[in-house]
Computed example of a mutant assay.
Amino acid sequence: MSQTTGRERAATPANRQLRRFAAFTLIPLFSTLAALAIYGFIASALTTRTLSQPVPNGITTTGTIVDYRTSTGPKSGTKYHPEDTFHAANGRTYTIFGPWGGHRPVIGATVTISYNPRNPAQAHDLTNDNEWAANLVSFGTVAFLVAAAIAVGTRIGRRRRKRLQESHRQP
């Protein structure tokens, strides 16, 4: 019975084909999916953060939570979207939605609103539970781990290729 070593198995056409498939199909595919996921997470976190910042050259006033919407996801749990009303300097009452958050809003609670005096419909609810910061940190961690895994995998692959090339050079 003939036994083959790991070096001999590595040189078979089937293994070469599998390596090419992994190198040119799977790795770029998973890298692209990981990059898109990370981009989406960061964009979401930054959007939430932007909506909890004062409107440039805006006026700050108080508003009241009058209602809220909910959204439940399998991984994110229940998120709440408060509906706020406020009175602008022009005497009109406006309704906006605050940023999504993980805490149930209290109907009738006072919130801080920043709005554009020329267009009061452009307003931000500044009362936020700062989930964007936690999201940004967790997404940054995921991005770091994916990059580290790719770097380690690349390093291991280089070492294996170098050893394989050295073994073929020896008589």
Rank of each mutant, 00 (worst) to 15 (best):
residue 50 T to P: 09
residue 81 H to P: 07
residue 157 G to N: 07
residue 146 V to R: 03
residue 143 A to D: 01
residue 92 R to H: 10
residue 168 H to I: 05
residue 4 T to F: 15
residue 167 S to M: 11
residue 124 H to W: 03
residue 47 T to V: 04
residue 29 L to G: 09
residue 49 R to M: 15
residue 37 A to K: 04
residue 42 I to L: 12
residue 1 M to K: 11
residue 48 T to L: 13
residue 14 A to L: 12
residue 52 S to K: 02
residue 106 V to M: 02
residue 17 Q to S: 15
residue 109 A to Q: 10
residue 150 I to N: 06
residue 171 P to C: 05
residue 148 A to G: 03
residue 46 L to F: 13
residue 112 T to L: 05
residue 151 A to P: 05
residue 70 T to Q: 08
residue 25 T to P: 05
residue 67 D to P: 03
residue 57 N to S: 12
residue 38 I to N: 01
residue 103 H to T: 15
residue 66 V to Y: 01
residue 117 P to N: 07
residue 162 K to R: 11
residue 131 E to V: 06
residue 34 A to Y: 05
residue 54 P to A: 09
residue 121 A to N: 10
residue 45 A to M: 04
residue 165 Q to S: 10
residue 128 N to A: 11
residue 166 E to F: 03
residue 36 L to C: 13
residue 16 R to V: 03
residue 166 E to S: 09
residue 168 H to K: 13
residue 5 T to F: 01
residue 104 R to D: 07
residue 8 E to A: 12
residue 38 I to W: 07
residue 79 K to F: 10
residue 143 A to S: 07
residue 98 G to F: 00
residue 131 E to G: 13
residue 118 R to S: 13
residue 154 T to V: 14
residue 83 E to P: 02
residue 76 S to G: 10
residue 65 I to F: 00
residue 105 P to C: 00
residue 133 A to G: 10
residue 66 V to G: 06
residue 78 T to N: 05
residue 60 T to Q: 14
residue 135 N to A: 12
residue 27 I to Q: 04
residue 147 A to C: 08
residue 23 A to T: 14
residue 74 P to A: 13
residue 116 N to W: 02
residue 47 T to Y: 06
residue 15 N to L: 04
residue 98 G to N: 00
residue 80 Y to P: 07
residue 45 A to R: 00
residue 55 V to H: 05
residue 40 G to E: 10
residue 108 G to Y: 03
residue 65 I to R: 06
residue 118 R to W: 01
residue 31 S to E: 08
